[in-house]
Design a protein around this nucleic acid. Sequence first.
DNA 1: CTGCTTCCATGATATAGATCAGTTAACTGC
DNA 2: GCAGTTAACTGATCTATATCATGGAAGCAG
Lengths: 251, 251
Amino acid sequence: MNTRRKSPVNIISTEVHHCSMDLRLKILGRLPFFIDLNPSELMMINQRFNSLGFKKDEFIYYSGDPAERMFVVAEGKIKLFQPGFERRNVLLNILLEGDLFGNLTVFGSSTYTDTAQSLTSSCILSISSQSFGEILKEFPSLAIKSLQVMEKRLIAANKRVFEISTLPAEKRIVVTLLTLVEKVGKQTNQGVLIDAPISREDLAEMTATTPETVSRVMSQFQSSGVIESGRKWISIVDWDAFQQLANVESP
Amino acid sequence: MNTRRKSPVNIISTEVHHCSMDLRLKILGRLPFFIDLNPSELMMINQRFNSLGFKKDEFIYYSGDPAERMFVVAEGKIKLFQPGFERRNVLLNILLEGDLFGNLTVFGSSTYTDTAQSLTSSCILSISSQSFGEILKEFPSLAIKSLQVMEKRLIAANKRVFEISTLPAEKRIVVTLLTLVEKVGKQTNQGVLIDAPISREDLAEMTATTPETVSRVMSQFQSSGVIESGRKWISIVDWDAFQQLANVESP
DNA sequence: CTGCTTCCATGATATAGATCAGTTAACTGC
DNA sequence: GCAGTTAACTGATCTATATCATGGAAGCAG
């Protein structure tokens, strides 16, 4: 029987209206997209962005809405998912500071193909697709950088297809945890904390399984001392043992 | 007990060395990529491409190889898959004339993340990633068009993740057949023929299931008169009934 | 602090489809 | 045309995990 613990995940409470101009410039200047631009170019681009604050669990846009804007996470964490309605959702991505989402291509899909919801209270920068298109034309190197973002996402999506198609549930959960560690892992004196409030249900939606199965697997890992876990938090405490679990050759 | 039939899929026997200069110009000039270029620009780009002939079942490149080239299907059909080695493969895509594959971004992944194999004997055009990068720089509108290709593929991949995550095997098979019809469907007097030599195993690799399950489902559809099918061929003969099967709301 | 909500863990049972095995006929190569 | 190969079909059995149900405790709001 595992002891439950209090959550070590520190959910920063961002004031909803607290998207300052400085934060905007700071984020934009650090994006791979804009990193080669000079300050005056950056300032020009900055002026085309709006900033928006979202409370925890608020929706930023819905799947099926007209895809008219591109977004950047300035602060906070966002989850992108495809709603399953009568079936389960499929959680596509967890986004952090600096990540782009929404309509990234200006001209493609006329509606959003996923739904964006805040995991934590967040500050989001937003630009209209039209403005973004103008920027891409004005700075062709930015279009090339868009390609880099898209490629990474496509590779990740195909990897996901492979995993869901070929791995048993336990392994799927392990490789998904690894991905999360890579993205939002934070070294603590008690191992590697996945520094985002991820529930069993979220994990289930990421691994094509059910919250109960996730719970069983996590409980098992906890019993063997590989992880410590509680309500919306997970820490990998025995990294070597965990890596063994991720050994895909041994189904 | 269903009667097996002879295959109506006409596998054109392309002479392996038969990639003429005319065919090259014809294909390149028709690509969304190059459709806005004038003939002299097109000729210049054409000169950077090589052409290669592949026999049926030959490999064009392997997952893990250095990703040094971009490819275009001039003639024939190609399958992209991720090898599963001790487990089953995952078939990612069927490509036809005009489709791009390989390294599409010049600068991203250093190795191919899939394996390309010819379904039929094929003529393939190929350009080095470096040359392709130069073309993208020289014609920035082509970079934007690359984005369009990538976006469509990303949307399709996420759709695939959703389907595999949420739909039972039968439904997965149906929606996959629909996708194939959309891509390589050919109207005949006996319904819509999927005009590519797709085996039960291929379908299984596309739908995260086994050849036996695919066989059972197909046999069932055949018994109800919805499709006709045989060795590496499928025809949808009752389109309305088939559309009913694809009704995703009714699992 | 208390009451309520919701997330997590666990047990029992059911089920979708994977696995294993064997047969048949379409296809290929000589 | 013939022999051999292999793709497809079908049956029996097994298995991973989904489904259903319940209880406990962390977290939230007043």
